[in-house]
């Protein structure tokens, strides 16, 4: 065989239909999303983690006091995706963003339908746009849009 002859190749799709069990905290979080309510969790120092976790990331204490946060907030950082991949949430250019919602002390990683890269700015106010059907998924928030 000619040693420079290319390897044969074939398309291959990896397809896993994972289902994940939720603990008590994430269960409340995802039930909230389905009902179009946003729930964070309060840490011992009074600050609010959103999305919520079962444990305080600094002290590893159990935390379980759920508190509502607003569906509007500020963009803390963003990255513009000019050519979305088919797996990604929007089929037109959009931004991944770290968004601190009013009432939360941490940011949520989500997407902003900002129209164009020039329309994006750190600090800009954005508001959640809900999906037509909400099922208990992070994608129940279809995206955020400039508020």
């Amino acid at each position: 065989m000619n040693p420079t002859e290319e390897s044969l190749s074939a398309p291959h799709v990896l397809d896993y239909t994972y289902k994940r069990s939720l603990g008590p905290i994430l269960s409340q979080f995802f039930t909230g999303l389905r009902d179009k309510k946003l729930l964070g969790v309060k840490r011992k120092d009074g600050s609010v983690l959103f999305p919520p976790k079962e444990y305080d990331p600094d002290t590893s204490e159990s935390i379980d006091e759920m508190v509502p946060v607003q569906d509007v907030g500020a963009v803390k950082s963003w990255a513009w995706v000019a050519q979305p991949r088919k797996q990604q949430p929007l089929d037109k250019p959009f931004a991944y963003a770290l968004i601190q919602l009013d009432g939360a002390d941490t940011t949520l990683l989500h997407v902003v339908d900002g129209g164009s890269e020039a329309g994006m700015k750190t600090g800009m106010r954005v508001k959640a746009r809900w999906a037509d059907e909400t099922i208990g998924s992070i994608k129940d928030i279809a995206c955020f849009e400039p508020a």
Binding site: S77, A79, Q87, Q88, Y96, L98, T122
Partner: peptide
């Protein structure tokens, strides 16, 4: 995070860009 992040499929370059901007 497979619950709140992977379903949004943020690619590694976008993730790094979020950090770089900060």
């Amino acid at each position: 995070d497979p619950y709140t992040q992977t379903p949004l499929w943020p690619d590694a370059i976008s993730m790094a860009a979020l950090q770089a901007r900060i």
